[in-house]
Every structure is written in C-alpha cells, then in structure tokens.
Write a protein that binds this DNA or RNA. Structure first.
Lengths: 242, 242
DNA sequence: CGCGCAATTGATTGATGTCAATTGGAGTGG
DNA sequence: CCACTCCAATTGACATCAATCAATTGCGCG
C-alpha cells in the first residue's frame, strides 16, 4: 500500500476489516498529490470537481461564507479523511474546503472511485459509511451549537478531536498537535473571536486543557468528557461487518 | 408502484431519472407500515435497527437529548424522506427520530435494501445521495446556528421547507401545512420558546410570512430568500446522471 | 362554563458580540 | 544586539441578543 493511502485504510479499518484484495484496490487508486498553505482553498464552493480529495497531513475545514463576510466552518477534517467524497454524488459543492494549516492532499478521480466501488461493493459501503459518519459529526455539532453552552461546546469538540486523531495515530497520550488560530476555532464553534478566547481560558482555568497554540493537552480527560456530556457513539469507532 | 413508494420515487427522481425496472425494484420492497401520534418515537437513540423508515405522511425530526432535559432537533423530515437510511451502515443510532405531528412511516428491512442496491448500483448511488443531501442540509443548519441571526435562521429554514415540500407535491403555491408547535420550532432552531415566538413575530411584522400554527404562507418569497441569503444549491434539486 | 394546552407578553438576568486598546512573541533589517 | 513590525492573543468597557421567570391571553373541547 502506498504511503498516501495508509491514512485512508486506517480510517476505514477502524470500522470494519479490509481484505488483502480490498487494500490492494485502494492502494492502486491513482492520486495527484498537492500541498497547500494555511488559508488556501482546496476545493471551491460551487465548483463541480471530478476528483475527491483525501487529506494526508494537516487540518482542513469545510467553510460556508455569508454576505457580511463572516464564515462558518461546518466541520474540521484530519489526515485520513476523504473530505469531499460526497462530491462524487452531489456534483456541485455547497461549501468550500479550506486549509487551516499547511497540508497535503491526494486528489482521486471520481471515475476510478466508481471503478473501485463496482469492483468491491463492500469498499463502496465503507466509503458510503464515511460520508454518513461525517453527517453524524455534523449532527453532534448542531446539538452543540443549539443547546450547549460555549465552553461545553468547545470541550465536546476537543474530546471528539482526540478520539478522531487517535484513530489515525496522531496523538501522544492525551495530547496532539493543534496549530490553529483562535479565529479558526471561533469560526468552528460559531462564536466571536473575543468570546472564543474567553471560553478557552475558562477550560484552562478549570484545569481541563492546556493549549499554547501549537500543542493541545487534555489535562483531565474523564472530567472533560463528563463536562461536555461526550458520548462517542456517533463516531462509530467499532469494528463491525458493514 | 405501490402507494407507499410514490413519495420515495418522487424524491429520488428529483435528482436523476429512474428507469422502469428501477421503479419496479423500489415498488417491490417489503414494507411494514405504521402510524405514530405526535410526540412518539419512531426510532430510539442507541437502538440498532434492522430496518430503515421512510416517511409517508406528517413531519418527523431527528432529536438529540441533553442531561438538563433540553433537546435539539438536528433535522426535520418530510414525506418521501428515508429518515434513518444511514442506520444501514451506522448500525447504532446516535439520535432518535420523533414524530412532530401524527404521521405514517414504512419500515423497510435492511437486507432487502441491500438486495436492491446489489441489483441496481444506480439506485444504490441515489440512496447514498439521499444520505449525502441530509448531510448538506445539516451543514446549512450549522451555518445558520453559528452565523445567522435568529430571524434569518428561521427565514432560511422556511425557505428550505417550501422547496423540499414542493418536491413532493405538498405545497399550494407559496403555502403549505405546517402544524408544528412553536416549542418544536424552538428546538429546531436552537432558541428558547419565548425567543422563538418573538422571532416568528418579527418575520410576520416584516411581511414575509403568515402562520397561524397550521398553514404557513410565504407572503414575499423573493424578499424571504434575500433576507435569509438562501441559496438552494445544497438541496441538489437538479436532474443529473449520478 | 371551565379546563388545559399553546401562544403571547413583560420584566429581568445572563451570555455573547462589538469596539478599542494593549500585550507578547517571532521575524526582519539595520 | 537592538529597534521595528506584524500578527495573534488577551483585556476592558459597553451594547445587544437571547434565556429565564412569571403572568396573561386565546382557543378548542368536554
């Protein structure tokens, strides 16, 4: 398996077993590898991409823009995530994908994805699954935005990130690299920059996290989960026949 | 085609052409039809359903509950929507599905869905598409919650509902039956009941809508769209080969 | 007529946004 | 090495939005 697809296989295998042939199929997908700087757009809103992009390194997010210039990041994505796989069916992008840090992505043509899916309906279902988990993550986000207090929302997001990053081997114990700007976190949790700053300070002063802008460390995981009412069911981190 | 699947076929056909055989396949799906009263649960959180449910009449919503007893409705669903199709892959429900009005639903066994998908990859893709559109709708909701003022959020939701209901023939011009309680609307847009009431009044006083608790009438559609910055791209109401 | 649910209103509190500085640290050129 | 600049983080003061508490109204129904 080529280096590029380790992360993908790892993500898929977190939810079901891949046979050797299936791994083969994935590793033979053609991919155009590209590097982006923080702030660049990987995929533009209203574009009609003929390839989907798999994140290899760095953090990216889906973004929607409003007339007043503000922006909401509707989801954050990590290495191993097939960010715009849904474009395979949606045809027209309803949001753009932006780099939050410098990152690398592999662009895979839709027609070769279709070929893989036809060759292996099981891999097809696992890809379908990954779009459906994206939906579950967005549902959790809706609930956080609608009904959780700011600090709990942020605590929930951090809890989720730790688990998702563990899946792809990007944690060291309870800490992980998280070189985002507070302004990006603000757009992620739907708050103003100033209030985001105060919210972060609250989690710090509660002794739940440490974050210097580069490394996020969860100081008290059990407490963080309890505080955020975090239930990882929606991430489907269970191996099952699918 | 049996009566039950008219709505489903109609929803799918809004996005692509179905051949006669494909319609056949759909119409032959076995279905257990059930009726629910407002407030009842169609599918429970943490359940592991072996069937997915297609809404035939009425309004239902996905709901997530919090420890303090509050609730967020992460999406509203209409006749023709295959609400918990994603359970086919997710296995465990991360939310429950509740009836907002009295409603009817058809429960379709997962194994017969898998059979249809294997018989027709194209229908499979259209079902995949429908889960992916649910995701797009949730993204729009995230943006509304995070970055739109309350009244604009509500205006956006109403704009969306009109279009989605048109798709399944449930509108009369710019009006449609909408027998929800304001408390449900509150849980849908993430506001308190009192503030929801005032938000509705604002849209009324701006001359955008009329709503007596049963029938919603959009008085000035162009203005409503403009006010909400409504861009229907995300609903994918375009016929294309998928 | 009276009950009960849903809608509405008023008053108040609390959370969050906005505006305007200020601080701190990394890089840059002299 | 030191000023200087720039960007991000932080702080304070204040305005605005939304939640909460507590009535009150309106309507359908027995």
């Amino acid at each position: 398996m080529t280096e590029e697809f380790c992360a993908l296989a790892r993500t898929l295998e977190r939810r079901d077993v891949l046979s050797g042939e299936e791994q083969q199929l994935l590793s033979q997908l053609p991919a155009r590898k590209r590097r982006f700087a923080a702030g660049e757009e990987l995929v533009a809103e209203h574009a009609e991409p003929s390839e989907s992009c798999l994140i290899l390194s760095g953090f990216v997010a889906r973004a929607q823009f409003l007339a007043d210039g503000s922006r909401q990041l509707t989801a954050i994505h990590l290495p191993g995530d097939f960010v715009d796989l849904h474009a395979l069916l949606l045809k027209v992008m309803d949001h753009s994908v932006v780099a939050l840090t410098s990152c690398e992505a592999a662009f895979v043509p839709h027609n070769s994805l279709v070929a893989v899916i036809e060759a292996s309906p099981h891999v097809g279902r696992l890809l379908w699954l990954s779009t459906v988990i994206d939906g579950a993550i967005e549902r959790a986000c809706v609930t956080s935005l609608g009904r959780r207090a700011a600090a709990k929302h942020l605590a929930h997001l951090i809890s989720e990130l730790l688990l998702r990053l563990e899946t792809v081997g990007l944690t060291r114990g309870n800490s992980f690299d998280f070189p985002l700007k507070q302004a990006d976190v603000a757009d992620l949790i739907g708050l103003s920059l100033v209030h985001t700053n105060r919210t972060i300070q609250e989690l710090r002063s509660q002794g739940l996290i440490r974050w210097d802008g580069r490394v996020m460390t969860i100081t008290d995981l059990a407490q963080l989960h309890k505080y955020a009412e975090f239930d990882p069911t929606y991430l489907n981190l269970v191996k099952r026949p699918r």
